[in-house]
């Protein structure tokens, strides 16, 4: 399969667009009319051909432009990459996982040649070719995690496992839904999520943590998460909050279909072999409400989910100021037809 990589931007003029093929494979997250939280985690196994689950790391038509956007974000704020010194083994683990899966899944774009410890990596879409010694960071232009993280869509956090918990001790984060890597680096699972007063709630966090502590090499897991973003902006970081928050005021009845994007995160978690660390990947898919209405059942379902959404959740996702426009605009596509279970487009 040969992709045509889009020439597009995720800032300033926001020329980002989805082709009909990209719309059809969008990981629409709602299988039911009402959105309920659950531990929606499942094995990250190979999905249907052409779907975003087909390969370990999905590469799509936005690949080149997203990597270029990442370069801009890192240039403006080098703090979007950070790695504590004890994470070097995990960095190499990450590089190996990324290079071997990408070369294996997309041989037309990426080639990895191993000659003992001397590896040659070729990334044709980004015009990169480097020969380096595996395990010797001085033979790469940057640290291995940053080197490979720059050549992948989405964000990655490396979690060190110790003291019966997980610490976020490294990350490359340029397309986050409003959390700060610089602030969170070095935090434990509990610290990241804060002390939670109710016992039942503690149970929830402990359950998720226990599951992750038992994550095994070769058995990755994934889940979807969602929010909404005004403009197809990848960098909705708290660092740049003053730059993008103001766009929320631009949403009105006329602009909502174009401006508001459903932002879906495909989160995946892998145990890394040498370091026993976990890599947490967050891949972001953006789709304007207008593009979502390409498929009537998505438009109807999205309308119903948004109409029923708990106000606290609307606030939590930062949608309060424009959410009513979303519901009003989507209403025109909803004829009340009964929809069967599933998130498929048609």
């Amino acid at each position: 399969m040969q992709l045509n990589f889009n020439d597009e931007s995720f800032r300033d003029d926001y020329s980002y667009k989805n082709s009909p093929g990209a719309i059809k494979r969008f990981p629409f997250p709602f299988a039911e009319d009402h959105y309920m939280y659950s531990v929606n985690i499942e094995p990250h196994t190979k999905g249907a051909q052409g779907s975003v689950y087909e390969f370990t790391f999905d590469v799509d038509e936005h690949y080149v432009s997203e990597c270029l956007d990442k370069i801009i974000t890192l240039e403006q704020d080098p703090g979007r990459y950070s790695a504590l010194p004890h994470m070097m083994d995990a960095q190499w683990d990450f590089l190996e996982l990324a290079m071997t899966s990408m070369a294996n899944d997309y041989p037309e774009y990426f080639t990895l040649t191993k000659n003992g410890n001397v590896w040659t990596w070729e990334n044709r879409p980004l015009d990169i070719m480097d020969t380096f010694t595996f395990g010797d960071a001085s033979t790469l232009p940057s640290e291995p995690f940053e080197y490979m993280g720059r050549q992948m869509q989405g964000d990655f956090v490396l979690l060190d496992q110790r003291d019966g918990t997980l610490y976020s001790d490294a990350g490359i984060v340029t397309s986050q839904a409003d959390w700060s890597l610089a602030f969170n680096t070095g935090m434990s699972w509990q610290e990241w999520h804060g002390p939670v007063p109710k016992v039942t709630e503690l149970g929830v966090l402990d359950r998720a943590l226990k599951y992750l502590l038992n994550l095994q090499v070769g058995n990755p897991v994934r889940r979807l998460n969602w929010t909404m973003t005004v403009n197809p902006r990848l960098d909705t970081s708290p660092e740049n909050y003053p730059l993008w928050a103001i766009d929320r005021n631009k949403v009105n009845n006329e602009t909502v279909g174009e401006l508001v994007n459903l932002r879906v995160e495909l989160q995946s978690l892998f145990r890394l072999p040498r370091s026993n660390a976990i890599v947490f990947g967050v891949r972001c898919y953006l789709m304007s409400l207008k593009d979502i209405t390409t498929y009537p059942r998505w438009a109807k379902r999205l309308h119903r989910v948004q109409k029923d959404l708990h106000p606290d959740l609307i606030e939590y996702k930062g949608m309060t100021s424009y959410h009513r426009y979303v519901i009003d605009w989507l209403a025109q596509f909803d004829d009340g037809e009964v929809l069967e279970y599933g998130s498929h487009p048609e």
């Binding site: 700060s180 990241w192 999520h193 930062g318």
Partner: peptide, 20 residues
Amino acid sequence: VGSGAVLSVWLIEEINMERG
């Protein structure tokens, strides 16, 4: 403030929603 500035691995939103 913006949306919750935590890495919501999962269920964290549920906790927030319940307690507001």
